[in-house]
Structure formats: structure tokens, C-alpha cells
Design a protein around this nucleic acid. Structure first.
Lengths: 192, 192
DNA sequence: TTGATTTTACTTATTAGTAAGTATATTTGT
DNA sequence: ACAAATATACTTACTAATAAGTAAAATCAA
């Protein structure tokens, strides 16, 4: 794979996470990289193509992460913790996540991009649901709603947590993160 | 106040909630209203001015709602329930909320608009925190974290709940909404 | 030399924004 | 009461900048 292509993907993703999909242009990419806007079009003929590629890359990255965790015999507690750590990193870097960013712009996206976004979110929710369910049956987690509802609830808190932290105070995210974790962790005093 | 001005404000807000701040133009407003783009500039010289006006309107609307609830002697349970119902309505209308929408675009907003957004979110969080705290001391709510963390957690879940529901399935929001409510409601079986 | 990569030099469309003009009310001075 | 002045609510007709996108020529690397 071309190094230029990889860099464009990386930069475009960062721009989506910092300025939003409709808030960046090919010019933003080309000037930062020191190339011409037409060079970006060479690798990604259209913005839709670029956006879809970013989503495909992220789906692949997510599935590799899950596979890797399973290969290393991570239990569900460790898996969910690892997943949530991605969001802590995003918060440190003042970024939001693709779900929150593209969720805002969804009605302005082309159908293929929308489909890819749905695919990505679908896989994340399904994985989280399964991890929560399995973790609960092993006594690693404790929560009342269905695993799917709890997965949606956790993902929501993470996604908007980043957005709120960027509006209010970066450090607020740590508390949100902590609250999620305590919500599903079986503590001694939780039963009191 | 001018009827045209009011309509522009209303339409622009809807556009922010459906297409995002950087996803709509003065043309979108003027064509729908059957006026010229310059007429929109007559009322709101710049897009920043329009955006800031929308936020100011929303702050006022929120404070009127709180005042109204207090005048009607709503208890904290009823107050928080009313607030959460606003999000159910947004979900029915396939809209997200201003916090989620502008949270995505925050780095592309002018400083005055960013300040207004912070003001709005700050007031909502402060009110929610106070309502949760007071409600808990009356036994209307039950939760472990600090009232502020719980407020941030609830607001996060609502904000991103709308975004997730728009990506996945409209009906998913009802479950997220339900889960928040059950999280803070003192149920008999919660103590088991 | 051949193919991959990149630039040059565009086009077309859209953006926010403005300057100047117009019709219709509304106010004001006499 | 009546005309002159002024304010309101726009339209017409632009600009300057930027957007995504393209065709063709030049460069580079094997």
C-alpha cells in the first residue's frame, strides 16, 4: 500500500474527528501533506470514496482488535476495558469518535457511506452485547437490562461523553468513563 | 418580532439538528421559505450570528421551562422526566440535539458561538445536577456517583442515544431512555 | 519503456457575504 | 391634514473565496 494513501486516510480521519465530515476539504489534506488537491483525488476520486474507505479501515481495525484479544485469551472484563480505553485516548487527544461525528452528518452522507457507518456501529454493538452477556454469566459484570440495552447505553455514554468533554471540560470524561465502569462492575457495596 | 425572523430561526435550528451546522447553507433556508438569500442576511448578517441567536433562544427556552416547572410545583422526578421527554420527541422527529450536533462541529465554530454553546450546556448540566441531588435527598432517585457525574452520565446517554438511534434503529432510543430511567429510579428489585 | 504517481491548469457549483435599489408602511414636522 | 423624511422588509445583482472534481501533461521509479 502507498504511504501517501495511508497518510491521507489517517489525516482525513483525524479531520473528521476534529472538524466533522462537512467541516474539512481536500485542500485541508493536501496543504498539510504538501501535495496538490488533485493528488488526493488520485487516491480517493471522491470524498464519499474517502469517507467509505475510512469506515472500512475502521471496521477492519476493530475486527483485528477483537481477534487479537481473543487470541490472547482476554476475558470479557479485559476486552471491554480495552475497548473503553480507546475512548480515553480519544479524549486525551481532544477527538470525538466516528460514531458521534458521522452520526451528526448522517443525512448529508451518500447511501454507501451511510451503509458502511451502519455496518461499523452494528458490529461494535453486537460485539459489546456478546461480551457483556458472556461476562455477566461468568460473574464479571452485573447489570439489570438486557445485554443489548446495556451495550447501547454504554456506547451512548462513551460517544457523547467525548462530545460533552470537548464542550465543557476535558477532565469530565474521566468521570463519565468511571461511572460506566462502576455501573457494570459487581462491587461489594453495590448490593447494599 | 418579525414572523420571517422567527421562521428563519426555527428552520435553521431544524437544519442544524438534521444536517449539521456545516451541512446547511443560507440557500437551504431561503429556498424553503421562498425568499432570497440576501433576505436571510438582512435578519442575520452572518451565519455565526444566526447560530448564536439559535443558542440564545434555546437557553431562554430552557430557562422558561425550568421556571414553569417550578411554578407548577413539579417535584424533581417530574422535572427530570419532563426534560427527558424532550429527547423522546426529538427521536420521534429523527432529530438529534444541539449538544450532539454542535459538539461535533465545535472546532469550526467562532468563539462567540462556542461560548454560547458552553453556556447552554453548562446551565443544563447544573440544573440536572441540582435536580438529581435534591431528588435523591427526597428519596425520589437512587444512584451512587456524585450528582454531577450522574448528570453528565444521563446527558451523555441522551445525546448519543439520539445519534445511535438515527444510525441504527429509531426504536433503540426507547430502550436507552428506559435504561436511564431505571438506573436512577429506586426499584424494589434494584436492591436484590 | 512502462506504469505508477503527481502536478498543472482547469471547470463547475456553491458558499457566505455585500452594495444598491425598491415598494410599502410608519413617523414626523408644519 | 398633508407632504417629507425615515424605517422596514425585502430583491436584484453582484463578489471573492472555496468546494469537489477532471483532463492532460510531466515526472519518477523499476
Amino acid at each position: 500500500m502507498s504511504v501517501t494513501r495511508e497518510k491521507i486516510l489517517e489525516l482525513a480521519e483525524e479531520l473528521i474527528l476534529t472538524k466533522g465530515y462537512n467541516g474539512f476539504s481536500y485542500q485541508d489534506i493536501s496543504t498539510v501533506m504538501g501535495i496538490k488537491n488533485a493528488a488526493v483525488h488520485y487516491y480517493f476520486p471522491s470524498k464519499e470514496n474517502l469517507g467509505t474507505s475510512i469506515l472500512k479501515t475502521n471496521i477492519q481495525r476493530f475486527e483485528e482488535m477483537v481477534e487479537n484479544m481473543q487470541n490472547r485469551n482476554f476475558d470479557e472484563h479485559q476486552q471491554v476495558e480495552s475497548f473503553m480505553k480507546i475512548y480515553l485516548k480519544s479524549n486525551r487527544e481532544n477527538k470525538i469518535c466516528l460514531i458521534g461525528s458521522l452520526g451528526t452528518d448522517i443525512n448529508t452522507l451518500s447511501e454507501p457511506m451511510r451503509a458502511e457507518l451502519q455496518k461499523m456501529v452494528g458490529r461494535i454493538v453486537n460485539w459489546l452485547e456478546a461480551a457483556l452477556e458472556a461476562g455477566r454469566s461468568k460473574g464479571l459484570f452485573s447489570f439489570q437490562p438486557s445485554a443489548r440495552d446495556q451495550a447501547l447505553h454504554i456506547l451512548s455514554a462513551l460517544v457523547a461523553g467525548l462530545q460533552l468533554a470537548r464542550i465543557l471540560n476535558k477532565s469530565d470524561f474521566k468521570n463519565i468513563h468511571q461511572a460506566i465502569w462502576e455501573e457494570i462492575t459487581p462491587h461489594a457495596n453495590k448490593q447494599l
